[in-house]
Nucleic acid binder design. Structure first.
Length: 418
RNA sequence: GUGGGUGUAGCUCAGCUCGGUAGAGCGCUGGAUUGUGGCUCCAGUGGUCGCGGGUUCAAAUCCCGUCACUCACCCCA
């Protein structure tokens, strides 16, 4: 028997209704905020991600599906959406359009990590990107879109918005020096990982889950106290605008970003439902990225939501209306040809109809009607044919009535149209 | 890449310590109800015990190896 490859999965059955529900929200809500869909290729030259994400990040260093093409190009399955989006933005010269350019994407991403709860090698992200404005009002609008999204998914009560400012290339280096200096003094008390982080990425220590490190990080200097004047003003404005839109948030000065391209505003939607992998959506500003990938110096901001994790959250809460088949068609005798005509007529009116092609006993067909959660069973046997009628049985109430062909559609409309 | 846990029926799992006929619940099929579902009762169907090797008269059970899944770390959505 063939098995799926590690970290990949099939999505079907009850779970797929959650996906369809979410997908509708993605398309409707994005449009409402003025974003148009952008379909990014799944495959890019590996260089796009090296440049865009940062060649020293874990994503690029050890998590990309990368291979050599027949013409010796190195290609990679996209591990995230932003780098490819920006490549397209530059390649198609979309920067030439005046004003803010807003796009959203939705699709699978690929990272070669060890799978665990809420983490797969193929996972789906919905993300938005807005280019061309450095206004903090845009930051707050993007964040509002994110919180609206979870609200429509009916799980906002399971999530908390955290925001932070991680400074800019002007003020962050100074802060990093201060931070490194601080941690150096208590280096011996840090865990092994954190001693390594001290050299590679000291800001990560703020994020460590080990109690002893937490205690040290607690008193560490925080970025928001070292912001340059512009960054500080920007952050204040974002917070004010969020409050004006009634968005509740928490400033988490220990929030960090793994990807090099982020500046200033960083935000996350986190849950405490999962043991690990508690971030369901995250984003931030990336003002230098467009230039980094060969375009003009246009600012940008965006977020990405992990749909697999979102579905995982929603499944523990009964938020999706169950799917009910309108009609299950029961044919006890050899009246298949006649029955199919009726079924076809009903489908063309827009109702959902199914039947059992094995045509077992009426009893077994009724059982199937029940299993499909049909609202009505239509029974069509010799008795009905003789009277040019169909029996309509209400599966909830249990009552039934004989309806002549000529009045069938009218009857269904009364019963099924809300 | 590192560490822990688990692989037995379609699904959830018991049995393994202390070797001796492979089990339960749910599901599925049929019947009680010959043209009527859900509830109940009855019967039936269903497994190379992950795979390979070893020990033994005898292995789901003990030993070795291997693969898979899973949770966690690193990191991330």
């Amino acid at each position: 028997m063939y098995k799926k490859v590690r970290g990949f999965r099939d999505i079907f059955g009850d779970e797929i209704y959650y996906w369809n529900f979410i997908e509708k929200i993605i398309y409707d809500l994005s449009r409402r905020y003025g974003y148009s869909e952008y379909k990014i290729p799944v495959l890019e030259k590996a260089e796009v991600f090296n440049r865009g994400i940062g060649s020293t990040t874990d994503i690029v260093e050890k998590e990309m599906f990368i291979f050599k093409d027949k013409n010796d190009d190195f290609l990679a399955l996209r591990p995230e959406g932003t780098a490819g989006m920006v490549r397209g933005f530059v390649e198609n010269k979309l920067y030439a359009i005046s004003g803010v350019k807003k796009y959203f994407y939705y699709g699978p991403m690929f990272r070669r990590e060890r799978p665990q709860k809420g983490r797969y090698r193929q996972f789906y992200q919905f993300g938005v990107e807005a280019f061309g404005s450095a206004s903090p009002v845009l930051d707050s609008e993007v964040i509002k879109l994110l919180t609206d999204f979870f609200k429509e998914c009916k799980i906002e009560d399971k999530l908390k918005l955290e925001i932070n400012s991680i400074g800019c290339p002007e003020c962050r280096p100074l802060y990093k020096d201060k931070l490194t200096e601080y941690f150096e003094t208590s280096k011996d008390e840090l865990c092994e990982d954190c001693r390594r982080r001290l050299n590679t990425n000291p800001m990560r220590i703020l994020d460590c889950k080990i109690e002893s490190c937490k205690a040290i990080a607690e008193k560490a200097p925080v970025m928001i106290n070292y912001l340059c004047r512009e960054c500080a003003q920007h952050f204040e404005s974002v917070k004010t605008n969020l409050s004006n839109m009634n968005v509740s948030f928490e400033v988490n000065p220990h929030m960090v970003r793994g990807l090099d391209y982020y500046v200033r505003t960083a935000f996350e939607m986190v849950t405490d439902e999962f043991e690990a992998n508690s971030t369901v959506g995250a984003g931030g500003r990336y003002d230098g990225l467009v230039k980094q990938l060969g375009g003009p110096d246009q600012p940008g901001i965006g977020f990405a939501v992990g749909i697999d994790r979102l579905v995982g959250l929603m499944e523990s809460k009964d938020v999706i209306p169950q799917y009910h088949l309108d009609i299950f068609f029961v044919l006890p005798d050899g009246l298949l040809d006649e029955g199919v005509k009726i079924i076809n007529n009903i489908r063309e009116k827009g109702y959902s109809v199914d039947m059992d092609f094995d045509l077992g006993s009426v009893k077994s067909q009724m059982k199937k009607a029940n299993r499909f959660k049909a609202k009505f069973a239509l029974i069509f046997g010799q008795n009905e044919l003789d009277k040019k009628s169909v029996t309509i049985k209400d599966m909830d109430k249990g009552n039934q009535e004989l309806v002549p062909f000529s009045r069938l559609m009218e009857k269904l409309s009364i019963k099924l149209d809300k």
